[in-house]
Design a protein around this nucleic acid. Structure first.
Lengths: 234, 234, 234, 234
DNA sequence: CATGAATGAGACTTCATTCAT
DNA sequence: GATGAATGAAGTCTCATTCAT
């Protein structure tokens, strides 16, 4: 499998995930995926997808603007222009909705990163490209990453058992670093798993700082890239 | 200002802050501060201090165990063994109590770090010492740092206008790095402010990861230290 | 009117009632009734009857297993394998469906009792036969009587104006006792109406008790029969 | 222990139960019980008892008038003239409140029966006295018995683990019959446990019937008594 | 006739805060 | 200063029913 294909497939999955709800009762989506093209949806299925799209958009808007605890299911419903009950037709509960938002954002960023060919190339370039992609996404979707990276443990004590965006993102970095270790660009003793988390943590906190202090994007990228490159390069 | 002085002042403030609450109506504390020594407290003031101590301990226990949103003022009062209303004699509201906990933890860590002479020494040693101090504190106070570093924006949308532990901690690192820049140990272009936040973010996220994966403390310290040193050293 | 005729008419009604719904728009049933025999049903009518049969079976299952308030129309539809909306094609509302279940059960028991020739014979034998029939029905249809005898006033405050199973059953007993009074087997001052209700109440409560305590069926029958016979016999 | 004492203690318990909530956090009540006399209650405790009294009265009124499902906690609170939250200060949930009502009624009836010396005497007299007491209570507290005897299984599927009024009442009858068996007044093979439930079921159903048909109280008592005496007497 | 997405009133419950004692 | 009963706005979620397809 080459990167192109991976990108394509991933994009597909991401787009599907935006509309779909996990692997639940969405026969139409399954059909679509199999057939490889939009296909004809029954009226009911179309309506349902439309509702979900509206709810997801509303949820994203409000979670970003107000945060998890300040957003009520009923606000999301109203913003989406659907009835209160419809919310619970699409999400098990509020947390489920938040996690769906979170996954959507992660998928989008994934697509974004891949389409920006950030993953290819040398350590120096790769890091800069990746940071650039991330900050570009952040520019186009202000606040989304910060909201999606919210620590769920602050929201719910019980483990959700889901892979959170933080983990996905840490993985992406870890894989990249594994490649750089193979090519001999990164130093040999590097613990890529741990480093993945450190980098994500750094970006998250640094991003918040930069946002608050209104630091220019290029400066942020340069400041971070310099440190990351130094830390990792052989 | 030399380190000694800074340390002394800071330690004093930290110790005071543990019992006191900022610049509120704490006659006893004010008196103590003016007099320059513990002094004899009136019965009522002693009782009040005792109540506050119990409340703070209870709050810490519950915020750590359950998190902010799962902890009710009533729970704190009961855990402290005081009446529900007493809570509001000592804190303006729940958030105020959380911030007090947060500051207490930050103060403690500060004291801990300073008493462990982590701040003195070369970049290599300094980083390792500091990380060691942090993880030792974390061992002695499990969960406290994670809880105290909770992003307040997840808790309340409105800005609290307070300097959060994250900021204090980032400052500590920044000051250290400034020194290393002066001594020529750190590379010249280093943006110490930004780097402070990146490091705190990395530690926070890395700490959570290590906790989840039950990574041994020395491995965590070594893994982090290696990266930080590489990133910063000239 | 002799027993034979009564039995025949009743059986007919019972069988009809299982499929039909009161005096609603059931063209097929009307046709059937007029023609006096099953006749050929149109495709649509056949489908409708099939839907109703499935809904009734599902309703019985769920009302018995979970009770009225824990059973939602949606559950019944899903269990029946029909669309949610179909439910309201066959029943005015949830209560209507419950009453249909209730009547079906009463009809079945009636048929059961009559086909077991429980009504013929002496007071002693009659009571034992009747109780035997009831408990046999209960064995074959566990929980159905308990569910069908549910006091509707617990379900809906407003009077439904319908003759509930309790009333029908009390009537059956009253008629029997009237016969025994005529034949001089029962004591003369017996208020058969009241006694009918007392007996039904006793059986209902006794049945629940026996079920909970897992009392053997013969013991239940003997225990009840002894008391009823003593109470009624001249 | 003689009947007098039992009566006295029971009455005390009943009165206490009306105000108290199980054996929960009501220190004042405990104190009162130990001291053997009303004692001085702290202001707070007095307020709390007053609230509970009002809530219990309101709950009884509404459960009787509208039934369980048509009565909302908030209706009870409003009727009682207290805030919504106060309800949950006194009852775990709506079911808990209903069960408290149910117990209160059972206790009252118990007291009523005992103070009417219904338990003493021969089988003939005893049955008539007991029925008289029951119907007098029912006259003074219209609808309360019917409501309190509501089958909880209709309300909640899960077992509450509590002894319901039905059971208590069946017990009372069973004990009486045990005595009559000892004195040789009741027939020897009598299964008093089962008979207790049969009688309660009969009274419950018969009472409902008599209420609906507006049968005069003496006629009800006579009709029932006749059957019960015949059923039980040697 | 059948479907199932949509609805929204309303149910139950919680909890941060107040205030009379 | 301390108490803890009281509060009621607000929150999450349910479910009987409708209606467009």
């Amino acid at each position: 499998m080459n990167t192109e294909e991976a990108g394509a497939r991933t994009r597909e999955a991401a787009e599907a995930a935006i509309l779909d709800h996990q692997d639940k009762d969405d026969a139409a989506a399954a059909y679509e995926a199999e057939a490889g093209e939009p296909a004809v949806l029954s009226g009911a299925a179309k309506r349902k997808l439309e509702s979900r799209r509206k709810l997801m958009a509303a949820a994203r808007k409000l979670f970003v603007e107000r945060g998890y605890h300040e957003t009520r299911p009923q606000d999301i419903s109203r913003e989406a222009g659907v009835g209160h009950g419809t919310f619970y037709l699409h999400f098990e509960d509020k947390l489920d909705c938040f996690l769906a938002f979170t996954e959507e954002a992660a998928d989008e960023l994934h697509v974004f990163v891949e389409t920006h060919h950030a993953v290819a190339g040398s350590l120096d370039e790769g890091i800069r490209e990746l940071l650039t992609a991330i900050f570009e996404y952040s520019d186009e979707n202000p606040g989304v990453l910060a909201a999606a990276l919210t620590d769920v443990s602050v929201i719910s004590t019980g483990d959700t058992g889901k892979k959170m965006p933080v983990d996905r993102w840490a993985d992406v970095w870890a894989q990249l670093m594994d490649r750089w270790k193979e090519t001999g660009e990164a130093f040999a003793e590097l613990d890529t798993k741990l480093a993945g988390y450190l980098i994500v943590g750094a970006i998250k906190q640094g991003g918040a700082y930069g946002h608050r202090r209104r630091i220019e994007r290029p400066d942020m990228i340069e400041g971070m890239a310099r440190l990351f490159v130094r830390a990792l390069k052989k």
